[in-house]
Design a protein around this nucleic acid. Structure first.
Lengths: 216, 216
DNA sequence: AATGTTAATCTTGTATACACGATTGTTGAC
DNA sequence: GTCAACAATCGTGTATACAAGATTAACATT
C-alpha cells in the first residue's frame, strides 16, 4: 500500500478500470467504493479527481463519475498519437543508444522471442510492454518516457485485444526485429518509420480492433 | 466561476502558476490558499490533486505541495514532444483541410501578421496561440487537439520568454507563412517538417531560452 | 393511459473536527 | 560554541457532519 490512501486508491481504481472490472460507462459511486476499500469518501474523491485529470473517468458536476467510453474512432486517434511519440522515442534511442539501454532492449527482445515462439499471448503481452518501455527509456528523454508510459498504460486494454488476433504474435515479433536492428544501427529515421507503423492501427488492423471490441 | 469550487480553484491556481505568480519551487500551503479564496481546505486539496496529476505541481506525502521547477533540459524535452505533436497535427490538417478550418487558419494568420507588423509582442503572443490552436482543430483529431492544447498551455510561460528574443516576431511570422502554404497545398510532409522546426528549440534558440530564464 | 408537478430520497459538494507525521525551536551536554 | 535530543507546534491526511442539487417515485390532471 502506498504512503497515503488517496494514491493507493487511485492506482487501485485505475487498475480496476484498465482490467475492465469497471467497464466503460460504469458509474463509480463514492460510497460504494469507500466501503469496498474500507475508507471514507474523502480519499475516494481525491482518487477520482486525479483519474478525471488523467482522462480515465469523467466527473459530471453533481452527477457522479463514470468510466469514459472512448469508442473506436477515439481509440484510433489515441493510437495515432502513441505511434508518433513512439516513433520519436525510437529515433532518439537510435541516436543516443548507450550500453545499458542496448542491454535492456536486447534482454526484453529475447523474452518477446521466447513467448512469441511459445505462442503464449499473455506472456507476450507482458514482455511486449517491457520491450516498448525499454525503448522509451533508451530515448533518454524523461518527459517523453513519462508521456509514452502514460499513454501506453491507457491503451493497454485495446492492445491486449489486438494480440488475440490471428497471427498477430509472430507479425508483431518480426516487426520488433526490424526495430531493434534499426536502433542498433543508429538509423533514427528507419526506427521512427518502423515504430510508427508497428504501433499505429492502419488499414485492416482498425477493423480487427472494432471487431474484437464488439466481441465483448 | 465554474460549477463547483474545486474546478474553479484548479483553473485559478493553474493560471497563477502559469502566469508566474506562484513561481517554480514555491510552496502551496492549503490553509493559505483556502483563506485567500475564501473556501475550506477540502476543495483546495482537490484542486491540488488534479494539478499534481497534470504534472504542474508535486505533492510530497505529508510534506505539502510545491510548484514544479522544470529546468532547461526538461523544458527542452517538452518542446521536443510538442514539436512532434504539432508536426502530426499539421500533417493531418494538410490532408483533411475543409472550408471551416481553412477560414479559421486564415483569420488567425492575418491577426498574427498585423500584430507582428506592429511589433506588438503581447498581442502576437495571444494571436500566435490562436493560430496554433486553429491548426490543432484542423487536424480533426479530438484527442490530438486535447493533447496539444494541454502541452501548449504548460509551455506558455517559456513561449512568452522566447518571443522577447530579438527578431523572433518576424522570424516566427515568416515561418507561419510557410506552414500555412504547405497546409493549404495539402503537403502534409512539408507542413510536418516546418512545424517541427518552428516549434522545437534547436541550436541557438536553446541558449536563448536558458538566457531568458536566467534573466528573471 | 400519458404527462406534468411535487415531494421524498439519494448522492455529491463543502466545511469542520480529529489524528498523526514532519518541522522547528529550545534546552542540555560535551 | 556546536551538536544532539526532546518537546512543542504546525500542516497534512482522513473521517464525519451538514448543505444543496439531482434523481426518482407518487400523485394529480388532462
Amino acid at each position: 500500500m502506498s504512503e497515503n490512501v488517496g494514491r493507493w486508491l487511485r492506482d487501485e481504481i485505475e487498475n480496476a478500470i484498465l482490467s475492465n472490472e469497471f467497464a466503460p460507462g460504469a458509474r463509480l459511486d463514492e460510497m460504494v467504493l469507500a466501503s469496498r476499500f474500507g475508507v471514507s469518501r474523502t480519499p475516494v474523491r481525491e482518487a477520482l479527481m486525479q483519474l478525471d485529470a488523467i482522462g480515465l473517468i469523467e466527473i459530471r458536476p453533481r452527477r457522479g463519475a463514470v468510466v469514459i467510453n472512448p469508442g473506436p474512432h477515439r481509440i484510433y486517434e489515441m493510437f495515432e498519437v502513441m505511434a508518433e511519440l513512439e516513433g520519436l522515442a525510437g529515433s532518439l534511442a537510435a541516436r543516443r543508444l548507450d550500453e545499458d539501454s542496448r542491454k535492456a532492449i536486447t534482454a526484453t527482445h529475447s523474452r518477446c522471442e521466447r513467448s512469441a515462439g511459445a505462442g503464449d499471448s499473455d506472456a507476450y503481452y507482458y514482455d511486449n510492454e517491457e520491450f516498448h518501455k525499454a525503448i522509451y527509456a533508451a530515448s533518454r528523454s524523461d518527459f517523453l518516457e513519462e508521456q509514452c508510459a502514460q499513454l501506453h498504460r491507457r491503451l493497454r486494454p485495446y492492445r491486449r485485444l489486438q494480440l488475440r488476433v490471428r497471427n498477430r504474435l509472430s507479425t508483431s515479433f518480426s516487426e520488433h526485429c526490424g526495430i531493434v536492428e534499426a536502433i542498433f544501427a543508429g538509423d533514427g529515421k528507419e526506427a521512427r518509420r518502423l515504430l510508427r507503423s508497428h504501433v499505429g492501427i492502419q488499414g485492416e488492423r482498425f477493423s480487427d480492433l472494432v471487431a474484437s471490441m464488439a466481441a465483448r
